[in-house]
Nucleic acid binder design. Structure first.
Lengths: 67, 67
DNA sequence: TCTTTATGTAAAGTATACTTTACTTTTGAG
DNA sequence: CTCAAAAGTAAAGTATACTTTACATAAAGA
């Protein structure tokens, strides 16, 4: 799965730490998700979408390899 | 988190087993998610949205308790 | 250069998503 | 009522999301 978290953060001028705080997860969790190291829960995806004033589908994209 | 999976399945006249097969997870996984026993991954949420021709936000809803 | 801020990374531990097998209960058609 | 399909449940195991602590690196400004 791909994501546009970095871009959305840039739009809002927000650091990984800022986003982590707003979403109530650790900064490392945001970093890992942003780098595609793992897939967030749907709760976290929904929270990010809400924080960025957008939708889950505009942040996260299925790829061919996604089982 | 709440969800409307049962309703979406009904619209498409689809059993839990049907949905499980399309999403490539077990039937028990669908059952547990539908009953709110756990939160799916974002990949699974995106797949369900795609299967139901709708969006993640129309299937899954954050609640007050959601950390 | 020195310092600060943001990002990346790593390892160990905990919580939880998901699987498999198998059984029970509910529901609806006939 | 009966039978079959659908849904619910449970337990044990595996995979992975997420935390905490800690350190490394890069960029930018004083």
């Amino acid at each position: 799965m791909k994501n546009t978290i970095k871009v959305e953060r840039a739009k809002q001028n927000m650091t990984q730490a800022d986003l982590a705080e707003k979403a109530k997860v650790s900064r490392q969790t945001i970093n890992a998700i942003e780098l595609g190291k793992f897939t967030p829960s749907t709760i976290l995806a929904l929270k990010m979408a809400r924080i960025f004033n957008t939708t889950v589908e505009q942040i996260f994209f299925l790829e061919d390899g996604d089982e």
